[in-house]
């Protein structure tokens, strides 16, 4: 057990290390010395932001110390939780801005991921037992997975938001309200949340349905299914076993798709101006706010790694085979 998780954690730590190193290398070594050109451009926009940026870059890159020391300084400031000062929302620290956006992103991502996984698995399982449903679920599933996230978001915003006028299409709550715990405000939150959620949910749904359908067909052809049928087990029992066993690879699939789902939420947030990390990234790019961009990148990487680790733990809990092999390995 320790060996298994140790190995996983090592990969995640290595990934974090590499991602952060990329984060450091890219602004430093990109052709055309982006640091200097950013500084030049920022100084035109706002002098005081430029001064802060200059100071931060000097601390970050310590432009006159050797490279290895610059690199160590970078990690040291990361360890202090110092992600720099935002240019876009000067003079707020990047860390605070991101922490304010994370709840919105999570509010979209978590329900969309979990619900699409559950509902998609459910559809896929039904598709595998019904030819008519199969002929519907499969093409619809493929179209949904082939849909760019932002395009479905645009269609929903246009159709249900602008044309039908059912839902608002911008922000996380009505600007006429101030955040509070009133029913009115919560209602506004939900109203603004629904379309981006739906969009994300629908695109993800197709993939899960197809995956489940294929997995369950594979399970229904497996030896244990054949044996049960030969002993006259009713269809219900065989399907139940197949469904449970097909869930396990779908869980692995969830881990593999995390990056894609996060990308989807970034794009969806942009369409709906939903103030999560995706929207921050867009603003950071528009305002040349590279501290904010790099900070958001770090948060995304860490979030994905944590989610991966949670899935690893869940997998061990639900699959007796892994559990037993690990116990055997530890003994």
């Amino acid at each position: 057990m320790r060996r298994y998780f140790g190995r996983k954690l090592f990969v995640y730590a290595l990934t974090f290390f590499i991602a952060m190193t990329v984060n450091w290398i890219i602004p430093r070594f990109m052709p055309g010395d982006p640091v200097q050109s950013r500084l030049a451009r920022a100084s035109l926009q706002s002098p005081e932001a430029s001064a802060a940026m200059q100071a931060y870059y000097e601390r970050l890159f310590g432009l006159d110390v050797p490279l290895w020391q610059q690199y160590l300084n970078f990690w040291a400031s990361l360890a202090r939780g110092d992600l720099g000062i935002s240019i876009w929302l000067f003079p707020q620290p990047v860390g605070d801005i991101i922490l304010g956006a994370v709840p919105y992103s999570l509010a979209l991502l978590l329900p969309a991921i979990l619900l699409s996984w559950v509902v998609g698995n459910w559809f896929g399982a039904y598709a595998a037992r019904n030819r008519w449903l199969d002929n519907t679920v499969l093409p619809v599933g493929y179209v949904l997975t082939a849909t760019p996230y932002m395009w479905l978001a645009l269609l929903l915003a246009w159709g249900l938001g602008i044309v039908a006028g059912l839902f608002p299409v911008g922000g996380a709550y009505s600007f006429a309200l101030t955040p509070s715990a009133t029913p009115e405000f919560v209602g506004s939150l939900l109203q603004h949340w629904f379309l981006p959620f739906l969009s994300l949910f629908l695109v993800a749904l197709g993939g899960w349905a197809i995956g489940m359908r294929n997995m369950i067909i594979y399970e229904l052809e497996s030896d244990y299914s054949n044996y049960l049928e030969a002993l006259g087990a009713p269809r219900r029992l065989v399907r139940r076993y197949a469904f449970r066993n097909a869930m396990l690879p779908q869980l692995t699939g969830l881990a593999l798709q995390l990056g894609t789902l996060v990308a989807g939420s970034l794009l969806t947030e942009i369409v709906f101006s939903y103030p999560g990390l995706g929207y921050l990234i867009l603003q950071a790019i528009r305002n040349q706010d590279f501290f904010l961009l790099q900070g958001a990148f770090m948060f995304i990487v860490v979030g994905v790694l944590i989610a991966n680790f949670i899935i690893d733990i869940v997998y061990v809990l639900v699959d007796p085979r892994t559990r037993i092999q690990m116990q055997g390995g530890a003994a």
Binding site: S222, D223, Y224, N226, Y227, L228, A230, L231, G232, A233, P234, R236, L237, Y241, R244, N245, L248, D319, P320, R321
Partner: peptide, 28 residues
């Protein structure tokens, strides 16, 4: 009844043997 060629993989890998047998018997 049948003893299949694939006896090694004839039992549901994610269910305890006793539970699987109980499920099968009850379902019949």
């Amino acid at each position: 009844s049948l003893i299949p060629q694939y006896a090694m993989s004839a039992m549901n890998p994610t269910r305890k043997v006793g539970r699987m047998i109980a499920d099968l018997l009850e379902s019949r």
